[in-house]
């Protein structure tokens, strides 16, 4: 693989820190505390799982880290950037260059081919066309979809779509990979395939990974740390030794 590893934040330094992070929604009379005073730290190069039942605030925390949303109070600091203090423009730049995201529902643009989907962040980054094409091809090759680059998402299986989404998240070489239930719509075999890829990015490219999941088993197999949320509050934060090893899992890259 020619994709160069990301060497920005040295392993072990603090990549993400939140302090008393809150995100409240007002629904008429009632106040919904989606995130309610969460303080956490993620070190650079770490693979962290955010666990909790549905509605516990996992996605809300992830969106705050991703700079897609702003905290009601408290702070999120990602690699020395206080996200609450960034302008909308600066937040967009931050999402473009620092963060790569994958979602449960893949979120590829249906009217574009895989290659076009994957190179879309490069358009926002104003990268030259010729360079874009080769970078997109390279990223698709990494996830084993080079042959399908001119297909539309609807022509692909769920696993293939999620691989394309991973390629897109990777294309700007971000330091942070944020995944919101990436295997939620996939069968267990395909899910494993995706998770192996995520772990590969974590290990080979040095990306910091924060993954939301409600499957504790999945977290135990891949995450180095598990953070538990309930009702918007952090209730547990414990280290974990991933049981799946790089060599030991069948499937790997297709």
């Amino acid at each position: 693989m020619t994709t160069a590893p990301v060497i920005s934040a040295a392993r072990g330094t603090i990549a993400i820190r939140s302090e008393n992070l809150c995100r409240h929604y007002r629904m008429g009379e009632t106040l919904i505390r989606a995130v309610d005073g969460v303080s956490l730290e993620v070190r650079a190069g770490e693979f962290v799982a955010l666990l909790g039942s549905s509605g516990s605030g996992k996605s809300s925390v992830l969106n705050l880290i991703a700079g897609l949303d702003r905290p009601t109070s408290g702070s999120v600091i990602v690699q020395d950037r206080d996200l609450a203090k960034l302008s909308r423009e600066e937040l967009a730049k931050y999402r473009l260059h620092v963060v790569g995201m994958v979602f449960q529902s893949f979120n590829l643009i249906a009217s574009m081919t895989l290659a076009e989907n994957v190179e879309l962040p490069l358009r926002f980054a104003e990268v030259d066309r010729s360079k874009r094409v080769s970078l997109a091809r390279e990223a698709l090759e990494r996830v084993g979809l080079r042959a399908r680059m001119d297909h539309r998402p609807s022509e692909l299986s769920g696993g293939e779509q999620q691989r394309a989404a991973l390629a897109r998240a990777l294309i700007n070489r971000p330091q942070l990979l944020l995944a919101d239930e990436p295997t939620g719509n996939l069968d267990s075999h395909t899910g494993t395939e995706i998770m192996d890829m995520v772990r590969e990015f974590n290990e080979q490219l040095g990306m910091t990974v924060v993954m939301v999941t409600h499957e504790r088993a999945l977290a135990e197999r891949y995450a180095q740390r598990m953070i538990f949320l309930a009702d918007g509050k952090l209730i547990d934060d414990r280290a974990n030794v991933p049981t799946a090893t790089t060599a030991g899992v069948p499937g790997g890259r297709a």
Binding site: L68, E89, R95, L96, V99, N107, P121, F124, A125
Partner: peptide, 15 residues
Amino acid sequence: REIGIMKAIGASDGD
């Protein structure tokens, strides 16, 4: 949704 996706992957308001 498409606009949401574009913003999530780094499109600015201006884009």
